[in-house]
Design a protein around this nucleic acid. Structure first.
Lengths: 151, 151
DNA sequence: ATTGAAAGCTCCGCGGG
DNA sequence: CCCGCGGAGCTTTCAAT
């Protein structure tokens, strides 16, 4: 899955502003608009680019409270089964299997502490879950898109 | 910080696809293209919408390895100072102040374990940092955009 | 990769609810 | 205040070279 430097710069532009026109991107990377579109289409096909989304202030949406939850499972549970269990919970923003004592880390986002507690109860109620260790976020210090040319 | 239902639906559309035309969004929400643009501009002004970005497969970019790092600081360090220190590190994707024993959680993303280790060393070398506890991600089970109408 | 042309979109001002 | 209308200018998306 290699990406040549030109593709990297195109992706960079679109990460910075997904609503740039192809012509605008072309001006930056030194290509014509049709050439840029062809490359973007190919990147979408290969799954390098997954799509384009708006970045929303979570506070404004009423999702101001978040937490990271270490999930400890009973016995051996496969990652796919963990995924299947946590995926239906709408407050789950992300989930990872991890090294260390915990089996997974679940990133929760809710409107307030109360809704967060409710989400936690549902999470803890899952049959695969033995216990959880929650860390509530007090403030988001930094939250940025990955740099495309950073590797 | 109110968002009327019309704005919510517009935001929803743009979260789903940030490259939709205003006309396309307008067709969904029942507005003309100029009306949609005016609302989007206002949402951008108010900071409800922070921008538009491409969603990239981290693997494809060569950022396949990530970790969550609990940062424990020496003495009392203000959130803004933590932010100022970790912000220059390019591997830092996000950072939060949190409840519990740790002062902050830092989300790192790197090309491989080696680069992750380097990033960790730099993080641990910061003057504010006393010690760190790292949790390396084995697999990303779930990673989804926040639902706009979910609150 | 570039050119040319048709279709579509954006973005401005204007008038009406 | 917010909406929809209309026109100028630009972008996208083909095709062909």
């Amino acid at each position: 899955m290699h990406m040549n430097p030109l593709d990297q710069r195109i992706v960079s532009c679109l990460v910075a502003n997904a609503r740039s026109s192809y012509a605008e991107v072309g001006k930056v990377v030194g290509l014509s608009a049709p050439a840029v579109k062809r490359r973007v289409d190919r990147l979408l096909d290969r799954g390098v680019l997954r799509g384009f989304t708006a970045v929303v202030d979570p506070e404004a949406l009423g999702w101001g409270t978040e937490a990271f939850v270490e999930v400890h499972c009973r016995g051996n549970v496969s990652p796919s089964r963990i995924r299947a269990r946590v995926e239906p919970l709408p407050e789950v923003v992300a989930a990872y299997t991890v090294t260390g004592a915990a089996d997974a880390i679940v990133h929760l986002r809710a409107a307030d502490i109360h809704q967060l507690e409710t989400a936690l109860e549902r999470l803890r109620g899952l049959d695969i879950v033995d216990r959880t260790v929650s860390t509530v976020v007090l403030s988001r210090l930094l939250d940025r898109p990955p740099a495309a040319g950073g590797g």
